[in-house]
């Protein structure tokens, strides 16, 4: 069968077409910031293994104004990342419970927040009192 002649717009600049696309790209970009922070911590570990002088220069870099600014940006990215993914989590979890008595979206998201809070507090407690 012959297909009719058609015209189709290309996808250049597609993210400019809807605010929803920009929100999606922001969410995805936060993982780059978090990945960068993980690399920074890894570099710190490397400096610690290398000796006192590299460790102190790494600490100096981390505590410098630019280092603190970058960490504040990473923290903001981590908040956006967590909020957006915990909100989307019910879409990815298979149905929990029997038909007619399924666990609701709010319960799934809330469980994620509680688990995250417990882990964060446990880590903070260990750093402050246990280490």
């Amino acid at each position: 069968m012959t297909r009719p002649a058609t015209w189709q717009r290309d996808m250049r600049g597609w993210w400019r077409r809807d605010p929803a696309f920009r929100r999606y790209l922001l969410r995805e970009a936060t993982s780059v910031a978090i990945g960068g922070y993980a690399l920074m911590l890894l570099a710190g570990l490397g400096c610690l293994a290398a000796g006192p002088a590299p460790w102190q220069s790494w600490q100096g870099l981390v505590m410098s104004p630019i280092g603190l600014l970058l960490q504040a940006l990473v923290f903001a990215a981590a908040v956006i990342h967590s909020v957006s993914w915990f909100r989307l989590m019910p879409l990815t979890v298979p149905p929990v419970g029997r038909p007619g008595r399924r666990l609701g979206d709010t319960a799934i998201s809330s469980a994620a927040w509680v688990a995250s809070a417990v882990c964060s507090l446990a880590l903070l407690g260990w750093l402050v009192y246990g280490a």
Partner: peptide, 19 residues
Amino acid sequence: CTLVGHCTEVCPQGVDPAR
């Protein structure tokens, strides 16, 4: 699918394809 999620937002019938 990369979970943009806009499909669910625009559905006039309340279908949730993203889910």
